[in-house]
Computed example of a mutant assay.
Amino acid sequence: MINKETIKTLVEEWLQKGDYFLVDVMMDGDRIAIEIDHADGVWVEDCAELSRYLQEKLGEELDEYELEVGSAGLGQPFKVVQQYKNHIGDEVEVLAADGKKYVGVLKTVEENSFVITTKEKQIPEGKKRPVLVDVDKTFAMDEVKYTKYVLNFK
């Protein structure tokens, strides 16, 4: 019987060949779904190569499962720190634990936190009209419901 740790170990072995990284391994009954990512995107050929590598290592034992190898979806929430790092400088949407949404540019990423720069209306001292100013907001990764890349078609 194949377990999740065995799959993770084998995927990590294969990933050492390049700049890919593991996002998630999901096992549900007779289905194994593996998500990988890369700063420049994931190629179908690499997913097929990883699938063949797993078949070679696990042999007939893998025949009992439906294996799906793919990339982390572009519009899907980030699951690992490396996804945050790959999107520094990009616009992201954050849903905070309090339910408030923020959209801004991902500025910095640490192991357990990240900073986005948002635009907020503020009234400068001595003025009557608000102006948009850049404001940095810091979030702890375990205190947000999700963070995801914002697709812009400009």
Rank of each mutant, 00 (worst) to 15 (best):
N3E: 13
K128T: 12
Y65L: 07
Y146G: 05
F139N: 10
V23M: 04
Y102M: 03
N3V: 07
T9F: 11
N112M: 04
E60D: 14
R52L: 12
K154T: 09
K57Q: 14
R129Q: 15
M1H: 13
L54I: 09
D24P: 01
Q83T: 04
T118H: 01
T108L: 00
G59I: 08
T147P: 06
K17I: 14
K119A: 11
V109N: 03
K154S: 12
K4M: 11
A33Q: 12
I32N: 03
K145D: 14
K57H: 10
H87N: 13
E111V: 06
Q16E: 15
D46K: 13
Q82E: 12
E111A: 13
Q122G: 00
R31G: 00
Q76W: 11
L95K: 15
E120Y: 01
V44W: 02
N86P: 02
S51I: 08
F21R: 04
H38W: 02
N3M: 04
L50C: 08
V11R: 10
V69E: 06
D134Y: 02
T147H: 05
L10H: 11
T117Y: 00
N152P: 00
V80N: 05
I2Y: 07
K57R: 15
D63R: 14
K79F: 06
L54D: 06
G29N: 10
A97E: 15
E61M: 08
Y146T: 08
W43I: 09
F114Y: 11
G73P: 06
K154C: 00
Y53P: 08
K17W: 08
D40V: 00
Y65T: 10
A39I: 11
K119R: 14
Q55Y: 12
K119I: 00
D134L: 04
D98C: 03
Q82V: 04
K121D: 11
G99Y: 08
V135C: 05
Y65N: 07
V69K: 07
C47R: 11
Y102C: 02
G75K: 10
L50M: 11
L50P: 08
L74M: 14
H87S: 06
K17M: 13
V150M: 05
L95Q: 10
Q122A: 13
N112F: 04
K154F: 08
P130W: 03
E13R: 14
V109Q: 03
K137P: 01
G89W: 02
Q16F: 09
L22V: 02
A33R: 15
K121L: 13
T6L: 14
G126Y: 05
Q55N: 14
C47P: 09
D28H: 13
F78S: 05
T118L: 02
T108Y: 03
K85E: 14
L62T: 03
F153G: 02
E64S: 14
T118E: 09
L62Q: 04
G126Q: 08
T118M: 00
K8D: 01
E56H: 13
K4D: 08
G89R: 06
Y149G: 00
V115P: 01
A96C: 03
V103Q: 15
L67H: 05
E5I: 09
D37G: 01
V105E: 14
E110I: 00
K107G: 00
G59F: 09
Y53L: 07
P77V: 07
A72M: 09
L15G: 06
E13P: 02
P130T: 06
S51F: 09
G104W: 05
F78V: 07
Q16D: 15
G73A: 11
I32R: 07
P77C: 09
R31I: 12
T138S: 13
E68G: 01
P130E: 12
I7C: 04
D136H: 10
